[in-house]
Amino acid sequence: MVSSPDPQWSLTLLNGWTLSRDGARQKVAHRQQRLITALALLGERPRTFLSGLLWPDSSEAQAAVGLRVSIWHINHELPDLLDADGTTDVSVALGEHVLVDITDLQRELQAPGAELSDWYPRWERLRTAELLPGWYEDWILVEQERFRALRTAALDSIASYHLSQGNTEETKAASKLAIALEPFRESSYRLLIQAHLATGDLVSALKTYRSFSADLRQEFGVGPSPSLVKLIAGAVGDSGRQMDSGGLPLTQMLPSLRPVTSESGDPGVNLVRELAAQKP
């Protein structure tokens, strides 16, 4: 007798919650959705951990009952979704055959930049792939923040790879998406500034630096790191340019970045020294 194949389960957590079996969408109560989601994001966990996570305001006994009820409903309404071997008296797990979209995306993002292709569709997916929008439980918020950090790190990696290959427009596109996700991420601004400098667009580099610096000081009362200050000051010193297209000295485009005199005679060094001596 030929055994029937395992059902094909597909769980979507990005931009909404959906569970499908062999292509057919399943109706799942929110209580069971929460348990399935926890197992998808956190992996196999002890029952005591899951009951405390999902029912934090209940007593230990009530939380244990809530977990048992959820497991019973999943086993009867969604057979084979839970791992028969991994689901024991002390632990619970999803079946290994369950496909989870966020897991696939995270695995894909771990590939080296040189091996990736179809950049723009991937950037769009990184830009729009929100984890469970509208879910506000504390443990979900932690996972949402972790995933947002993963997305921005991946975009930085893509931008850095393209910068190393001389693909400045691709660098700008990826770094701008990262900045949209994390407006105060200096590494993304650095990559964008480096892309502008690589094309000789000092004015755009200065404008980007100025905007970032102003936002940092307004929000946190601090300025950019000394290494970023040195990068932009060095670019100004090396350029030898005095005027931008608007008729203003380039150094006036930056907060308190103006020519100073010193024994070094190096404008870049002078600018770095002046900024380093300033207080936020």
Score class of each variant (00 low, 15 high):
A40D: 05
L41Y: 02
L41F: 01
L42F: 03
L42S: 09
G43C: 10
G43T: 08
E44K: 13
E44N: 04
R45Q: 15
P46V: 06
T48D: 05
F49Y: 05
L50K: 03
S51V: 04
S51F: 01
L53S: 02
D57H: 09
D57M: 05
D57R: 09
S58N: 07
S58A: 12
E60F: 07
A61Y: 14
G66D: 04
G66P: 01
R68I: 05
R68A: 09
R68F: 02
V69L: 12
S70L: 05
S70N: 10
W72D: 09
H73F: 04
H73R: 09
I74G: 00
N75I: 08
N75H: 10
P79K: 11
P79V: 13
L81P: 00
L81E: 02
L82M: 08
G86T: 09
D89W: 04
D89E: 11
V90I: 10
V90E: 12
V90C: 04
V92P: 00
V92C: 12
V92E: 02
L94M: 14
G95I: 09
H97I: 05
V100P: 00
D101T: 10
D101G: 11
T103E: 06
T103S: 06
D104A: 09
D104S: 06
Q106L: 08
Q106K: 12
R107T: 12
A111V: 12
P112D: 08
E115N: 07
E115V: 07
E115A: 09
E115C: 15
W119F: 05
Y120D: 15
P121W: 14
R122N: 07
R122F: 05
W123C: 11
R125T: 15
R127Y: 14
R127G: 10
T128D: 13
A129Y: 04
E130Y: 14
L131W: 01
W135C: 10
Y136T: 15
Y136I: 15
E137Y: 12
D138I: 14
D138K: 12
